[in-house]
Amino acid sequence: MVAGGARTGESEKISAWRPDVKGVTEVFHAHFTRHAYPMHVHDTWTLLIVDEGAVRYDLDRHEHGTPLGTVSLLPPQVPHNGSAATPHGFRKRVLYLEASSGGPLDASFIGAAVDSPDLVDPLLRNRISRLHACLARPGDELEAAARLALVGERLRERLRPRLADVPRPGPDRRVAGALRELLDARVVEGVELSEAAGLVHAHPAHLVRSFGAAYGIAPHQYLMARRVDRARRLLLDGLSPGEVAAECGFYDQSHLARHFKRVVGVPPGRYARGL
């Protein structure tokens, strides 16, 4: 992860980083009271949620707004601006998403996004918010990729409503079983969701859904549970938590501690001291 944060004024703050998740080029969090964006363009999709206040902006010569609860999707290469719609400014979270075939949305959705950039969709907003929280945690890239796949699926449904009338393919136990075998074979090194989808010949969103339906657990939860199980054995063998984190594929010791406590109920250090 490449991270950065800065204060632009007494009450204006930003934080930006590049996560190690395919399809996301940048994460940007900001609190602005006075800044107004001039007309500009991005070569990526801009997926925006506002947590406080509201933003007004012009897109394709039409005025739009982002009241609380709205999801705004601004397409690549279409000029837009932005400014606070309230005296107290706004606080926002933004994901910049690849506009290529490797991202959640390709160029075929640009026209629909220009026509309807603001989506009132509580489910989509919740998924985006949870994705932001996950992207801020190094080591949870598989979970972030799975959440991004579901966000992309929902966006495609909203931009092409007729797709909502087409039944989704049901859970596929063959696909789920293939992914489980792959995760079991790569407990320590892990696997990217895009690579897994290619190996088992399934769309990432279908892969995530099939695994959850078959085993009652998300792929990233399954992988972390396998790593925690391995960590328990190594702690019993006398290794330190720092050594165990490296041996089991965790990002660092704090990453191990968070997942270990979630599964076992106590931090790894306390678990080891109880021997």
Rank of each mutant, 00 (worst) to 15 (best):
H40F: 05
P241G: 07
D237R: 03
E243C: 09
I14L: 15
A16S: 15
G23A: 04
A36W: 02
M1V: 14
H62G: 01
Y37A: 13
L179R: 02
R168C: 09
P117I: 11
P268Q: 06
H203L: 13
F211Y: 12
D252R: 10
D115G: 00
S254N: 12
G5M: 12
R273S: 13
R93M: 12
H220N: 12
V120M: 01
T33D: 07
A185Y: 01
A3K: 12
M1W: 09
M39L: 14
G269K: 12
S72D: 01
R93P: 04
P171F: 06
R127V: 07
G89S: 09
D237N: 04
L105P: 04
G242R: 02
G265M: 07
A36L: 00
L193K: 08
R270F: 12
A144D: 03
L235W: 03
R258N: 08
F32A: 00
Y222P: 07
P161D: 08
G249K: 04
P267Y: 11
G198E: 14
L95A: 01
R91E: 08
V71I: 10
D237P: 04
S15R: 12
A178Y: 10
S254Q: 11
A205P: 12
R34C: 02
Q77K: 01
G249W: 12
H62A: 14
A196C: 06
A112Y: 01
R186P: 01
L123W: 00
T46E: 15
P169E: 13
G190I: 02
K261C: 13
A30D: 08
G212I: 08
P167L: 05
P104Q: 03
L275G: 12
Y251V: 08
D165P: 11
L124T: 06
M39W: 00
V244D: 05
S11W: 15
F250S: 00
V263K: 11
S101R: 06
A246G: 15
L124S: 03
M1C: 03
A84Q: 04
E243Q: 13
A202E: 02
E192G: 11
V55H: 02
H62Y: 09
R168G: 14
L124M: 03
D20S: 13
F109M: 10
G274H: 03
Y57W: 10
E181W: 02
L182G: 06
V266N: 05
L275E: 10
G89R: 01
L119Y: 03
G103K: 06
H35C: 00
A202F: 09
L95D: 00
A272K: 15
G23D: 06
H206Y: 10
L234D: 14
D43C: 09
L131G: 08
F32M: 11
A16D: 04
S83W: 13
S11P: 04
R160I: 00
R130V: 07
R209W: 12
G238I: 03
P204L: 08
R230F: 04
A214R: 14
A3P: 03
P79W: 13
F32H: 14
A164I: 07
E98K: 10
F32D: 02
V188L: 06
R34S: 14
L223R: 15
G89V: 00
H80R: 10
P104K: 01
A197F: 11
C134N: 05
